[in-house]
Amino acid sequence: MAKQNIELIVNGDRYEVAVEPNRMLVDVLREDLGLTGTKIGCAQGDCGACTVIMDGVSISSCLTLAVEAHQRDLTTIEGLATSPQELHPIQESFVQHGAVQCGYCTPGMVMSAKHLLDNNPKPSEQEIRQGLSGNLCRCTGYNKIVEAIGAAAGKMASSAKEG
């Protein structure tokens, strides 16, 4: 199978990679770019562990061909924190609220939360739960994740006001 040269723009960085047309975005992110924060939980679009943001919307990177991401703007979990010391407010809130246990669903959860808050900065609890309906978690029972996102929304709103 002839490889295709594509340009991926991930977290603001440009990568040129040659990929077979049948390769999934999640595999290229993880294997070719070494961005292993994006996880594979089912490879069928059911669990949300592979969620990334492409051109502003959350997608399942396990059901997206890498060639289809050519020159699109991608954000992965590695792109949220400005530095290890300075987490994104959603990430910080996950840490503080005990929303992380085994952590395997966490990157996808955080990305779905980001997509939700980008589109709806003040979600109700029900809207948060709806926004997470494509992300399965087996450890937390979701409640602390929902609380963390609610708290992050509040914090982001007040810091936006100050700013």
Binding site: R30, E31, G34, L35, T36, G37, T38, K39, I40, T76, I77, E78, L80, A81, P84, L87, Q91, F94, V95, Q96, G98, V100, Q101, G103, Y104, T106, P107, V110
Partner: peptide, 23 residues
């Protein structure tokens, strides 16, 4: 006390390494 998990920062940033992440 409710101490945040010490492994949580690595897990929320995608830095935590699971077996399939190893190459």
């Amino acid at each position: 006390k409710s101490i945040p998990r010490m492994d949580a920062p690595a897990k929320v940033t995608g830095r935590a390494l699971y077996a399939d992440d190893l190459k």
